[in-house]
Structures are given as C-alpha cells and as structure tokens.
Design a protein around this nucleic acid. Structure first.
Lengths: 148, 148
DNA sequence: ACCATTTAGTTAGCCGGCTAACTAAAAGCT
DNA sequence: AGCTTTTAGTTAGCCGGCTAACTAAATGGT
C-alpha cells in the first residue's frame, strides 16, 4: 500500500496547491459577485483600459473563445462594455464601467487576504525565496509552451 | 502606466504558474486520451483500488457531483468500473479495469516529464527548497479551508 | 416498531478552460 | 482591380470544477 509515488512529486504538490489557492481566491471573490478567473480580465483593464479582445486573450494566456464568453458575462453584470474598434471592423475594444472600476479596491483586497492565508507563518526570507522560485518556474513553463 | 500592483503578488504569480502547469500536464496527458484532472482519480485507485465514490471525492478534495461526472466518463472510456457496495445499497465501489491499470506507467511518465520542464535549470538545492515551501503553503491552504 | 435525521449519489445548471469549425473583415499578391 | 491568405471573433460542444435541489438508503431516538 503506501501512497503512490506520483503524490510525492513537486508537480503533484503544485497542482494541489493551485487547486486550493484557486478555491480560496474564488471564495473571497464570490463575496463581490465574481467568479475566479474573471478578476484576471479586470486586472488587465485596470492596468490598461480599452484593450482589444485578442489582446486580452494574449495577456491572460487564454484562447479566444474563453474571452468571448467571459466578456459576455462580464458585460451582462455591467462591469465591462464592448465598443467597436473604429480602425478595424472585425475588432472591438473593452472598457470598464464605473462598477468595473469600483471593484479594483475590493478585489485587490481579496488577493491580499488570500496571500496572507497562503503565506501564513512564513518569515520575510521564506516569502521572498518562494516568490523568486515561483518566478523562475513560471519562466520555465512559459518558455516551454512558447517553444511549441 | 506600469503593471497593476496585483501582478506583483506571490499569489498572482502562483495562479499563473498553476494555469501554465495544468496546461502543460494536460498536453502530455492528452496523448493518452486523458483530460487533466482525470489522472487524479486514477492515482487514488492505483494506490487503493475499490474506493467508494464519496471517499474519492474526499481524497481529491472535490465535490460529489464532480466525481459523478468524471466516473461516468472514465467508465465510458473503459478505464474504470463501478460495482455496488454489498454493505451499503446507496453506495458503490470503483475498480480499475486492465486499461486503467495499464495507464499507470505512461501517466507517471507524464508527471515526470512535466516536472522536468517545471524545474528546468534548477539545482538540487533549489528544487528541495521549492518542494518544502510548496508543502508548507499547502498546509496553510488546507488548514484554512478546514477551519470553515 | 416508527419516524426524523443524516448520509451517499445524482441531476440540473452555471463558470472558466479547451479544440474544431465557422464567418467576416483586413492585408497581400499579381 | 481581383483573388488568396491571414487575422479577429463567434459558435458549438466537450471537460473539470462548483452550488442548489433532489432521491433513496442507512442510522438514531423515542
């Protein structure tokens, strides 16, 4: 018996951490009527409003159909607005509404709270190390998916 | 302009790493006809065949309806078999088929390969540190969801 | 013995993801 | 100009997740 060898792998633990973290963030975001994943769209728009749909997909690292559906829902919630791109009739640009802008503070707070839970009991040193390692690992994954 | 502050947070980076990692594993598993997530069910069964549905849900940290649907699909693929539990008429037990058992090697290989990509260019020391930190973080997340 | 309560799974329906196949507009080539 | 190719988004449909509401069997209290 004993546990399966795969369970001891770093990748396996990472997958479990991800799942838990996503659930954690999702729980906090739900209080603001958001589903986990949608906040990523908002972050990009808070950073630069008026992006085109395709640009959003690239920045989120997501396929176009995902953006189509998410925007439909975010628009339905009145957080976002789609306006045609004057310079390209196939395209559109996404703008935050007042409600969408108003979520910046609360959602940022959710991220901060969830991060405090994530790193609870860890010192500055470990936190920095963890962050650095995550950034390196992210670079690995990005470059390997780009190489395809 | 500059990037939004949320993007600099450890939790944000973690979310991105997760997404990329999941995609990475998913790509490898697809070669064996599996969707990412399904392999978790198989891991539990390789470890202890004949689990009840509810027990599977607990081990995967997933809600019962998720198990219902996944098992229906895995059964449809012929990887798994559901037999009634003789001691409880509401319950059933899940058993691997020969095909399900045959996937153990290949799927383990997928995890190993994806882990090599994940940790590429990192030394033993960093790998160990990263693993330890992930385990601690996982403990944090588990305990906070259990406290609810 | 009986009824209320808890427990095990299912169904329906939503959301974030994906791929495949499509439409329509823009860009390029001749 | 006219035709081909590329690009931008959409639709349909699948999968892993979730919640809410339900069925049916086991358990517990009296």
């Amino acid at each position: 018996m004993g546990t399966h060898p795969v369970k001891g792998r770093t990748g396996f633990t990472l997958a479990k951490v991800c799942k838990a973290h996503r659930g954690n963030v999702g729980e906090l975001l739900a209080a603001h009527g958001l589903h986990v994943g949608q906040e990523m769209v908002l972050v990009e728009l808070w950073e630069s409003d008026g992006l085109r749909g395709g640009e959003l997909a690239v920045r989120l690292g997501v396929e176009p159909p995902t953006i189509t559906k998410m925007l439909r829902r975010l628009e339905g919630c009145g957080l976002v607005e789609r306006r045609p791109d004057p310079s390209d009739a196939r395209s559109f640009r996404v703008y935050l509404t007042d409600d969408g802008r108003a979520l910046e503070g609360p959602v940022t707070g959710c991220w901060e709270l969830s991060e405090e839970r994530l790193l609870a009991g860890m010192g500055e040193e470990d936190r920095r190390t963890f962050h650095e390692l995550l950034v390196r690992v992210r670079g690995n994954l990005d470059s390997c998916s780009a190489a395809e």
